[in-house]
Design a protein around this nucleic acid. Structure first.
Lengths: 191, 191
DNA sequence: CCTGTTCCGATGCAGTCGCATCGGAAAAAC
DNA sequence: GTTTTTCCGATGCGACTGCATCGGAACAGG
């Protein structure tokens, strides 16, 4: 057995570089050369890890998806008891990516969202993440109160969170205001 | 006076070509050559109309902004009487770009939204359009019912519409379902 | 017809892109 | 030490990018 490297670790490292570049200059500015430089590996290494640029981008998308959902689950486990309604609030807050330290993830997410509108492969991956979140939200809402249609509420909440995130990203809404609107929506949900 | 051409008409023609290309392949795929070919003019003509590619894209963004707001105003004037609440419904429906014939505009809008997250100049233009829509919505909501905070309702509605549009675009939500969710939200607004 | 002005199509240029190629470094097996 | 296998850094290639340049077509005034 000759020289061996941890491929998965390297793939994650490269995915982080992709996300950093998207955060700073947008998806259009992501080139294999810049990614390699940012990840501090050679272009050859990047090409060895991913068959093509598209495959690299899809992996990076899944990477942020995992990060967001992992954070959400951690948050849920960290605050276990409390009321079911506030659990939904915590999850929505996590999904909306309104806090400053989530801004980078939000920008990456928005970039992929736009790309997915014209790239079926990306759209498939993105739909997967959305379906997961939606299922989770639906279940929590169903537990929190006896609303007539928990699934519809989950879908509305998800769309609202995404819209607010986008508005914050372009500077049309302050993060605090977006958070306020999100919680006002939830408050009305529980009457 | 020698040869003269209608510059504004040509600029609009080029903007339409830009939007068509964005609709089909995304913002990344828009090159001056392709735009010129699609608009059936030469590259030289495009360069004469716009100092740079960025200026062309910003004009195109303003162009779709005008199209959307013009449609919205037309819709409002076309159905004058009725209840103020249904007027808000009509406007929201128009803004959400859920119908098939608005799909292209929606894709263009989403592409610019993502670009604006890393391009301050585009973000400025986009904020202008959003502010206009928000002002209009706020006024209509204030007229429709005596809600405690019409401005907040307008902002929430705008974000919800944007989020639903995005979800429809990536195929995660059927247009009819999105429409249903939008109207359910409005129905709860009026109790 | 001629002149003057405005416009634009074609071409060139420097730069960047994604990707393919390949010689040699690195390390386990013998 | 030698062999064998895995890996990667460097280099090259063809295509494409936005933009600058410029000679001539197109057309109004004389």
């Amino acid at each position: 057995m000759p020289k061996q490297v941890d491929h998965e670790e390297r793939r994650r490292r490269i995915a982080d570089a992709v996300c950093a570049l998207i955060d700073e200059q947008g998806l259009e500015a992501v080139s294999l050369r810049d990614v390699a430089a940012r990840a501090e590996v050679s272009m050859g290494a990047v090409q060895r890890c991913f068959r093509s640029k598209d495959e690299m981008l899809r992996f990076a998308l899944a990477h942020v998806g995992h990060q967001v959902t992992a954070r959400a689950r951690t948050r849920l486990l960290a605050a276990p008891a409390q009321s079911p309604a506030s659990t939904v609030g915590h999850l929505a807050h996590e999904i909306a990516l309104l806090q400053a330290h989530q801004r980078a993830q939000a920008r990456v997410w928005l970039a992929f969202l736009a790309a997915a509108a014209v790239n079926p492969a990306l759209a498939d991956d993105l739909r997967g993440s959305y379906t997961d979140l939606e299922t989770l939200l639906t279940r929590l809402i169903a537990d929190a109160g006896d609303l007539p249609d928990p699934a519809a509420e989950a879908r509305t909440l998800l769309a609202l969170a995404d819209g607010l995130t986008a508005h914050v990203l372009i500077g049309h809404r302050a993060p605090e205001e977006a958070e306020r609107l999100l919680h006002a929506h939830l408050a009305r949900l529980w009457q």
